[in-house]
Amino acid sequence: PVDVPEGEHKLQSQYCLWYSRRGSGKQSLNFHLNLKLIGRFGSVEQYWRIYSHLVRPGELSSHSDFHLFKSGIKPMWEDDANKCGGKWIVRLRKGLSSRCWENLVLAMLGEQFMVGEEICGAVVSVRFQEDIISIWNRTASDTAVTNRIRDTFRRVLNLPQGTAIEYKAHNDSIKDKSSF
């Protein structure tokens, strides 16, 4: 675990921040090889210290992702915490992702979702014409939980009116081979 110095504000969970960029050729098939751990943190102060050194998602090059997951959960479908889970996804036009991502991250770190241990992590994916933000939870079959996550997700992202969001169980994503 990350050591939190005295005087700093502990978070409920510790987190790992990962970065990935789609490689070319053979490497693109090995998602885990492209996954790089950027940092770990357990306090509010540690989070801001990492954040202040990072490029904001809106300024990342295409096909890059940030993955912010609780310590011990790898940002992959195959992880035990994720394999029965799913994610709420929103597709955003360019220019919105930095603000939305920051809002989502602060809600997650601050435990605003109020769904026990259900939240696994969040991902922002920078693509050619749009950016995609998602929040991952453990149990795709628990509708009460996923509805609660949806309501908080919508509220904290402060999305433009009429923005569609969708839920995808990871199991279905694997079956229909849809990517992030």
Partner: peptide
């Protein structure tokens, strides 16, 4: 036990704390 909960405004303020630099 009790969860450690933080509001957005508090977290944003903490950004300017000397410990967060």
């Amino acid at each position: 036990g009790t969860k450690i909960v933080y509001e957005r405004a508090f977290l944003m303020n903490m950004r300017n704390s000397p410990l967060a630099k």
